[in-house]
Write a protein that binds this DNA or RNA. Structure first.
Lengths: 122, 122
DNA sequence: AATTAAGTTAGCTAAATTGCTAAATAGACT
DNA sequence: AGTCTATTTAGCAATTTAGCTAACTTAATT
């Protein structure tokens, strides 16, 4: 279960155009990230997820992207794995599941009437 | 369907402690908002959702709460309905459904393997 | 051992955000 | 008409955010 501060941190991480696009990019994996499609497909994942490759696709300096990625990692929406001197990045699917569940519960509770509704007879 | 900018706007609206708490407060409806529990329960909803009543529960000035609510309304996460000179506020359940669906789809696509995963054999 | 490659940290600036108070607006009620 | 209630707008200050370049660290390669 995600506590309030963690949820806020997650929303904050996704509530910025640059980070949102980076996140989409990471989530799309190899397809969106590949800059050299002459490489064999098996190699795409490795290419796709390293920081400098992500940075190349944005009009921002590498340290800027690096800082955004750190913020996203701290929010647990991505996982960064060091492999040799590269860092591989993937979406944190467990967090996505938690967030999905959180909104589903909200909607369910609302529809079950646990939550009050303003009715226009007032 | 929510476009990218709208999604970012929604996450931004929820990515702030004050707004997040206001949102929770609105979602909880009458219970959380009621400051006079001697009033009949039927009256709770009306009390609960007006701006000044929400503001009373936070250590912030009313205009501050008002501006936060505007931001949340612009993001379509709440609905503000004018009734006489009060404004009633309720969560926008349609937006919550869309967001829930958006994360569910993300997870589903990931689990169906549409999205690449980094595997440790690299 | 030196060089190259991949990321991070530090320090700066500009812009955006979040709070405030005071003043303005809109509507309801005497 | 005048007053009260509910909310918004304007303008200000403090803080945070988001970008940059330059310098540093770490690890791989020559």
């Amino acid at each position: 279960m995600l506590n309030m501060d963690k949820k806020i941190q997650i929303f904050k991480a996704l509530g910025n155009k640059t980070r949102f696009k980076i996140f989409q990019n990471i989530f799309m994996g190899g397809y969106a990230c590949c800059i050299d499609d002459t490489k064999p497909k098996d190699d795409l994942i490795a290419q796709a997820t390293c920081i400098s490759t992500i940075a190349e696709q944005f009009d921002f300096a590498l340290p800027t992207i690096s800082r955004h990625l750190k913020e996203m990692k701290d929010a647990d929406i991505i996982i960064m794995t060091k492999n040799k001197n590269k860092i591989y990045i993937e979406p944190n699917i467990e967090t996505m599941k938690e967030i999905a569940r959180c909104f589903e519960t909200l909607v369910k509770e609302y529809e079950d009437g646990i939550v009050y509704q303003y009715n226009n007879t007032n």
